[in-house]
Design a binder for these strands. Structure first.
Lengths: 193, 193
DNA sequence: CATCATCATGAACCATGGTTCATCTTCATC
DNA sequence: GATGAAGATGAACCATGGTTCATGATGATG
């Protein structure tokens, strides 16, 4: 294993600038944004990108990893709140909405995820986060609010297929249409929104 | 407007070969498949592609249009069956499943549609087809099986977000999860599949 | 503040892939 | 079957964009 010598001060600074710029550029232009564009946005030369990341895939991957970490954080916080007595189904709804918003904010990340063959289940899947999500589902089921057969994979699939790149009203509409399929209460006839 | 002189025999033959090859190639490799690959698959030189289509966008667009026409046909046939007395909600389910299968068969077409900014509602939307789909929805609502507030746009959105490129079991699972959100009957607790 | 390992620079290189066009081939017509 | 228009060919052109590397700059260490 490598000995991890600490980065020189300027190198660390540049690494951060690069990740920030990459995230911003990918957010706006998608993962096919040129390395030169990222370099310029980071006020750095292209070569510097290659000092910090072996190739473009690695850079995009790093940005993606940051994003996934954020999602993981949300999941674990939700689980913690339920642990503390919050309503599970409510937390689940909020979590889904949050993920939708977060991911929508950087619409292109979904495309990046696809392009890099990342399926959400695996990416999100540090053991701790998976456990957190599982506990959320279990709690909601125990409350009799969530169908017994809904799995983590179902969640991953639905989130992966959500119209993240669509405007907010459409995303909300999507939630309205899809969520009732998961709950035991369904949707009363004629309920709008 | 142009006078549409008829194509020479070999030209017509080549045009068909090109469209076939393009569809096949795009299906397998996605819309970013090189023009050279399409040309080779069609046993034709690249230049010939450019005799028939001004640029790559036009070629992919033509393939896409063929695909959309197929979807339109299914929709109109379903509407006709309902007209003839078939159960509306059943036809709707079959239609959705069919679209899912058709589109899944050429998984990459969805990506092509995205890339070309085509949203299904517009693409599918010859007046006749829209009317057919609308009549299906109306019939299902009249039967009290479909929620009153479901619109054509809802349908377009759901189909556009379906996991078309996923394997069949996942697509079926998706249907199982999403459909109950649209119907008035929902899903009885514990019903699996 | 001298030294040097680490880091940054960016022009140049190369691969990929869309597009063109001068040239040759083939169909249609008489 | 001669002729001209329509069509086909594919090498060459060009733009884009990822990657490299010789050179120069800079932070860390004594």
């Amino acid at each position: 294993m490598s000995v991890e010598r600490p980065l020189r001060a300027d190198a660390a600074r540049n690494r951060a600038k690069i990740l920030d710029a990459a995230r911003a550029q990918i957010t706006v232009h998608g993962p096919e944004v040129p390395m030169d564009a990222i370099a310029e946005a980071a006020s750095v030369a292209v070569g510097t990108l290659y000092r910090h990341f072996p190739d473009k895939t690695a850079l995009v991957g790093a940005v993606l990893a940051e994003h996934m970490a954020e999602l993981a954080r949300h999941t674990e916080e939700a689980a913690a709140r339920v642990e503390a007595g919050a309503d599970a189904m409510t937390e689940l709804r909020v979590l889904i909405a949050t993920v939708l918003e977060t991911a929508a904010r950087d619409a292109a990340l979904k495309a990046a995820a696809r392009r890099f063959g990342a399926d959400y289940a695996e990416q999100i899947g540090t053991a701790r986060t998976v456990r957190a999500l599982q506990s959320l589902l279990d709690a909601a089921k125990a409350d009799g609010e969530l169908h017994q057969d809904i799995t983590i994979d179902d969640f991953a699939m639905l989130l992966a297929t959500a119209p993240l790149d669509a405007p907010a009203p459409i995303r909300e509409r999507w939630l309205t249409l899809v969520l009732p399929g998961l709950t035991t209460t369904g949707r009363p006839i004629g309920s709008v929104r």
